[in-house]
Design a protein around this nucleic acid. Structure first.
Lengths: 338, 338
DNA sequence: ATGAAAGCGCTAACAT
DNA sequence: ATGTTAGCGCTTTCAT
């Protein structure tokens, strides 16, 4: 029981702990070849793997980046995570992703667990939340983390005070939403429905605001699960209660897919009878039928940049960057029906 | 610099290290209320978070499950990972996912890093590989890991000797492929192309075998990147070089999507002029146009079961389970054109 | 009820 | 060139 440790290697090889360590830790300290070989052989034979905990304890650095997301299997997050991995891998960092399962109450908890692991870098990708106690807890935790000599990166997470010395990857959700809305307005739409996920999420809020900037009261918000099925259901509600609507927007592509499927099943033509828009522009959006008009969010790039900022943060320079929305106009939107 | 530690808490609170530990580690050891409160207060004030490394070192258990996958952002893996998280979360386990980026050479490396972290449970989800040295390395590493009192779970990873005391989640790729092939044969197809990813992957191999069981030499394998773009490209190659083909199968849905898009752009009717099949049946497959006939692989369930097996493995009982393929017949397949 | 001290596995400073 | 030892942060005996 228990993994093989250095002491066992040293004993078997008939050398001191220090010698074994010097050989196996990649130190450039000189060790005679015959001893070195003996150590190496025993280590290989027993398949010795050093204990990272002990090393971390000693060094105070873990080479682990902790990532806080809502749900790893959501393409929105897994895109970002993919970007993080790319950079982390080159920098020899392990990536430790934790799920909050979109339960905001859990976020503080998981953040703490990541801190317990003594991650060097913390990337918070879950959206902010409109909740004072939560925000305060978050700020305190992040401040203490950074205070401890680590780097924190917030992705699209405003609501956290600038006093927290964290790098940020900004994405202007409101502006992106405005572009989508503007596109619909130009097509002559007057009354639109907007399917949203949890309205307490700041990203959702901002997206709603963007639509309101253009449509004011003429946007009808419908709250649902942020999934394909949620969008499917919401579309049904909208059609039966709001016949005046000529376009259905969503705050995430998955919901728009659900809406498109619903419309397809009902034989309602898109975009002739109804326009549909998504948000985030995940990979399949362009291949869906009809291809989905969506606010493109450069997820992979955001992940990459976040990780780069984290690495820089360790060196002491905390930076802010902004990635730009870009409206992807496709086949799911057209002139409002008469 | 450096995170706050117990010693600092103890000093500030004017108590001994032991007392501080007893209060903060949730021990049921009795501590007078006034001291307890003082410690708690100081800890809250400084936002103390215990060092997991130290704890792991002491306890020998990390409550971390390590997961080895090809690529986190691939829906195939992220589905499984989602399942793992569900169970891990309930068991208070952290999930540490590492990417091999589909570079088989990296697998041994990443496995080692996970072992360094002293994960209690190891779930290997990347496919096996037809490479003796690789397999031997894998076996040795896993054996040593289990020997150390941990639990290993292999998902669809045959090729690893039964001597390795690992739990397994089996999925019969060959049988699943056979079902797809059989379906095509029944529709009258005689000549089919099969788009595959890396043929060194055992899962790919098995799927190819399943098709060969039914079609023998009449299946034309085409190797490409296991992505949407890879499938798109491969479709082009097939159409220009193999006009006799009446159906294009793929060993993963993403490639089939690419194929469908290519055919759509060329105005080739599916399934009238060409049938298309996928594999894995990821979420969007049913909503694609045309909806994709695919071998359904219960990814989420496999993840859940794997994690359950891992937890059981810690208790010493190593089990094998098998999940069943189920052919999802949809609109992308039809009778062979004349 | 409290504190002192040993020790988890490892590295690095310090002898020899 | 090799070995001995202190100590990273914590929990848990073992005194008191």
């Amino acid at each position: 029981m228990g993994a093989v440790n250095l002491k066992q290697i040293a004993q078997r090889a008939g050398v001191s702990l220090a010698t074994a360590s010097r050989v196996l830790s990649g130190s450039d300290y000189p060790v005679k070849d015959d001893l070195r070989e003996r150590v190496l052989e025993v280590a290989a034979q027993l398949d010795y793997v050093p204990n990272a905990s002990a090393r971390v304890l000693l060094r105070g650095r873990s080479s682990i980046v902790g990532v806080l997301v809502g749900d790893v299997s959501d393409p929105f997050f897994s895109g970002m995570i993919g970007g993080i991995y790319e950079v982390a891998d080159d920098a020899d960092y392990m990536v430790n992703v934790v799920n909050t399962f979109r339960e905001p109450g859990k976020e503080l908890d998981t953040l703490r667990r990541l801190r317990e692991q003594r991650v060097d870098i913390l990337i918070v990708a879950g959206s902010g939340l409109d909740d004072a106690a939560f925000t305060a807890g978050m700020e305190k935790s992040l401040a203490a983390f950074v205070q401890g000599g680590n780097a924190a990166v917030l992705i699209g997470h405003h609501g956290i005070s600038d006093d927290v010395h964290a790098a940020r990857v900004h994405f202007d959700n409101r502006e992106a939403a405005r572009e989508v809305a503007e596109h619909l307005r130009e097509l002559g739409h007057q009354r639109i429905a907007l399917i949203t996920g949890d309205p307490r999420l700041l990203s959702t809020r901002d997206r709603v605001l963007g639509f309101r900037d253009v449509f004011g009261d003429r946007v009808i918000p419908v709250e649902t699960e942020p999934t394909r099925d949620g969008g499917y259901e919401a579309a049904g509600t909208i059609l039966s209660t709001r016949p005046e609507v000529t376009a259905i927007a969503s705050t995430a592509d998955q919901m728009a897919f659900g809406t498109l499927v619903y419309l397809r099943e009902r034989g309602i033509l898109v975009p002739n009878e109804m326009s549909v828009t998504g948000f985030n522009d995940i990979d399949v959006a362009k291949d869906f039928v009809p291809s989905l008009t969506s606010a493109h969010v450069p997820l992979r790039e955001m992940g990459r940049r976040a990780m780069e900022l984290g690495l820089q943060g360790l060196e002491g320079d905390v930076d802010d960057i902004e990635v730009m929305p870009e409206l992807a106009i496709r086949a799911s939107t057209g002139p409002a029906r008469k």
